[in-house]
Nucleic acid binder design. Structure first.
Lengths: 186, 186
DNA sequence: CGGGAAAACTTGTCAGTGGCAAGATTGCGC
DNA sequence: GCGCAATCTTGCCACTGACAAGTTTTCCCG
């Protein structure tokens, strides 16, 4: 289809991002090599720099994509905080490459406009889930509650990805996360 | 004192670890350069390899030190789960370099004997803090509770370090952590 | 239709890095 | 004091990111 044009690949930017996602999944975001991406895409070693200028800028684009995907995921679980938390953990596990880039701001340009916008959307989705929570009569403290919910979901996801959790937790992230997250809503 | 011996530095291993801790604090664990460590220590570029064989092995030693330090910190707050959580977050912030290495197992040898031992000690300290918690009549589920406590403290610490938390959280990690962690013991 | 400018990509190069091999130096035990 | 092992150095290779300059293609404007 679009493979015999040596020049003007046509979709190189997208191709490189896909290759980057794959490579991050294999070797982690820090060990990502632009030259490896170029090889995967079948272009010269300097082609990535033309589209992204920089390794950090490429990871910025990847992180922005990730935050958008996360925002979408969280929005779908809207209204049910527990399910939103489970969805957060599930996102981290199934989209590990995205997740690992997103929370490693030293690797990208955290002040990029598109990125901050996408991150804002994800944050809003999270907060709206918490605000919708029934307070059971007690005065709501959405700020604190959303921080707590975010922290426990993020912590569990991070520990899961790091392989730091003991074996007894099992191998089903959604189930394990649900049990732990329920602890917040006792 | 110990600077004019060109050969047989005498304490090079320790010196390199200290330099590594400093360098990780400056550029992060992934961007650590063995050659930079060698320059900081005033030795040749291959000297680190002799003591650690490998970059990963050097980071393994650093991580093991970190887990030991964390175990010690948690033990001191024994009996008070909330304070243990605060201490966990405080450890992450004040010993950021250690913390960042410890939970990036792809950078070191996670199966190293000394490391797993140190990690075990830290985990035991955490669990003992949870087990000592008064249950208020309800049946205790130490497994789940310690996972939840660890998750929320770890998540808050990680988000804090990533600079992902909103500005309104303030700049006092202990105070902010205490407010969030209290949410678990309502 | 055609010509020039811009976009897309390549080639070449440079400094920096990790890891290995081989050599130099030192201290320690016998 | 002598050999030997531990410690450290020098030299090298493949790889990487970034930059500069050149080449090819597309596209737009006349």
């Amino acid at each position: 289809m679009t493979d015999t044009r040596a020049y003007h690949h046509g979709d190189l930017r997208r191709t490189l991002l896909a290759a980057a996602l794959e490579a991050v999944g294999e070797v982690g975001p820090a060990a990502l090599s632009l030259r490896d991406l170029a090889r995967r895409a079948g272009v010269s070693h300097a082609a990535p720099a033309h589209h992204f200028g920089d390794k950090a800028c490429l990871l910025t684009a990847l992180a922005a994509q990730g935050f958008d995907l996360l925002a979408q995921t969280l929005t779908e679980a809207d209204g049910d905080l527990l399910e939103a938390g489970v969805a957060y953990v599930d996102f981290a596990v199934t989209h590990r490459a995205y997740f690992e880039v997103m929370f490693r701001p030293e690797l990208y340009r955290a002040d990029d406009a598109e990125l901050t916008a996408a991150r804002g959307r994800a944050g809003a989705a999270l907060r709206s889930g918490v605000a919708a929570l029934p307070t059971g009569g007690a005065p709501a403290d959405t700020d604190r509650d959303s921080l707590a919910a975010w922290s426990i979901a993020h912590g569990f996801a991070t520990l899961w990805l790091a392989g730091a959790l003991p074996d007894r937790v099992g191998d089903n992230p959604r189930e394990a996360a649900r049990a732990v997250l329920r602890r917040l809503s006792t």
